[in-house]
Computed example of a mutant assay.
Amino acid sequence: MLDRTDPTFRESVLKGLAKDPKVLEPKWFYDAAGSALFDEICELPEYYPTRTEKSILEERAAEIASELGNDVILYEPGAGSLQKARILLEALEGLARFIPSDISAAHLEAAASDLRKAFPDIAIDPVACDFTKHLEMPAIADDRPVTIFFPGSTIGNFEPGQAENLLRRFRKETGARQLLIGVDLVKDRETLVAAYDDAAGVTAAFNLNLLKRINRELEADFALHQFQHHALFNESRSRIEMHLESLCEQSVSISGERFDFRDGERIHTENSYKYTPERFASLAGKAGWVKPHLWTDQNRLFGVFLFQSEEAD
């Protein structure tokens, strides 16, 4: 987790809430409590992405491992609980090193500690960093090929232009030769909305936890009961949107600054873009990732793509 006094968090929140419409960056969801809530979301019956992607990885593990090759360095930005990485670590022979990175240092170290017990022969070197800004690579005295592993449809949280820039940075900052990435595919509205507005209210708690974090770390006075979680599918932009909606006219103080909310006004907290395979392959190609290989489930809910760097072509 970033330090409580980190000016980047404060600057991002103050700048985002000064906009019209108001926005908050989704990367700030993941303090320790937010990371734990997201792990709960991944187990919900409505939330198909995690279990579908895991099933693809499990069913195609040997095939994926064969495509990746032996003796590689695996780098996972935004690694979270590392559950999907376990599938690859079991399948890959002679894995040189696994480097998970995450913005929540405490959550990452706990997950990496558990993974070391399960895989004592693999060098596991977690790094705490914000992959939206840069990827930190620990000092490695070898030239073995790097594969970026980016599961979880996290790429959908970025505007298409931002996603293209992020994938380009992944390639340039690590020298990676391959990209293994999870992408949520276009499907019916009902399935999509239910995945982001579950009956148990866990996603609502996850969204509202961001206000709780702002209260705790930025001396704010959000009344959480005066905001509600709202999810919708924006068909024209092919994305799920998550918002926090004010239930009344109110004012909130954050780090000594005042922000007014109208009744019904929303804070836009997250997007999750859904892609057709063709559209995502085109986006990745613009970022220098070529030769797409796609694995998907029988219902084509989710896709796992493997790309090659154009430099390795």
Rank of each mutant, 00 (worst) to 15 (best):
F98P: 09
I99A: 10
P100C: 05
S101G: 15
D102I: 08
D102V: 09
D102R: 00
L108P: 01
L108Q: 06
E109P: 00
E109W: 00
A110I: 08
A111F: 13
A112C: 12
S113F: 13
S113D: 07
S113Y: 15
D114N: 14
D114Y: 00
L115G: 08
L115F: 12
R116H: 13
K117C: 10
A118V: 14
A118M: 14
F119V: 05
P120E: 01
D121T: 07
I122H: 03
A123W: 01
P126C: 11
P126V: 06
A128E: 12
A128P: 03
C129W: 00
F131G: 01
T132P: 00
H134P: 00
E136G: 02
M137C: 01
M137L: 10
A141T: 05
D142K: 10
D143R: 12
P145Y: 10
V146S: 10
V146C: 15
F149W: 08
P151A: 11
S153M: 14
S153I: 03
N157K: 02
F158R: 01
E159S: 09
E159C: 00
P160V: 04
P160R: 15
Q162D: 08
L166E: 05
L167D: 12
R168W: 03
R168A: 08
R169H: 15
K172I: 07
T174E: 10
G175K: 11
G175E: 13
A176W: 15
A176G: 10
A176I: 09
R177C: 14
R177S: 13
Q178M: 13
Q178C: 11
L179S: 05
L180I: 10
G182A: 10
V183H: 12
D184K: 11
D184S: 11
V186H: 15
V186M: 08
D188R: 06
R189V: 15
T191V: 07
T191N: 10
L192K: 06
L192F: 06
A195R: 09
D198M: 14
D198S: 04
A199P: 03
T203A: 02
F206C: 02
N209M: 15
N209F: 06
L210M: 05
R213Y: 02
E217Y: 04
E217P: 00
E219S: 14
A220S: 11
A220W: 08
F222W: 10
